[in-house]
Every structure is written in structure tokens, then in C-alpha cells.
Amino acid sequence: MPRGELLGSLEQIVLIALMRLGANAYGMTVRREIEERTGRDLSIGAVYATLERLEAKGYVSSALGEPTPERGGRAKRHFRIEASGERAVRATQDAMRKMTAGLKSRLAT
């Protein structure tokens, strides 16, 4: 990741969801993981638009799976976070930690 380029909040959330889901990461599971953990009911379009953007940046790679009957014979697209994606998450988290240092009491919910 170029110095100074930080991830947007949705990009960060999607990348972390990919880290959590591992081999089972595809559009639907990513959407559900985010909804269950954050309460954000994202549209599938928003998830795919974000994944496409991350793939263009080289943070994510994807591969087509086999078609399955429960999906009306349509194939899944599996997503995987790349090493550069993990570095981007770490750099963004690090920047957030530095920015919020000393503000613990004000940011406590």
C-alpha cells in the first residue's frame, strides 16, 4: 500500500470479514458476517462494488466455484484477502490507534 493511502470504513470492514471467513468467503457470507457483527444491513450490490474496488487495488483475489442447485445452478465467486490487503488493514488500524490515542474516555460508549 502506498504511504498515506488508508482504507475507507467499508473497505476495512469487508477485508476483515474476508479474514474471518477464510475459505468460506463469498458475497452472501461476507454480507451476513458484516450484518451479524456490526448490525449494518448492507446490500449485496454494495458488498460486490467494494470487493471489485479492492480487487482492482490488488488487496483481494477471486475465483469462480462450482454451480450449486440451491443457487439456481449459479456458481459462487470466492474471495481471498491478499498479503497487501492484510498490510492495508494493519496500516489503517495503526493510523486509527494513533489518532485515538489519549481519547479513550471521550470515545468510550
Binding site: R32, E70, G72
Partner: peptide, 9 residues
């Protein structure tokens, strides 16, 4: 992939 995800969920 997108339409399949919607059908599955």
C-alpha cells in the same frame, strides 16, 4: 455470483 448469492440467502 451476485444473483446466486441473492437466491441462496
Amino acid at each position: 455470483a451476485v444473483i446466486g448469492d441473492l437466491i441462496e440467502e
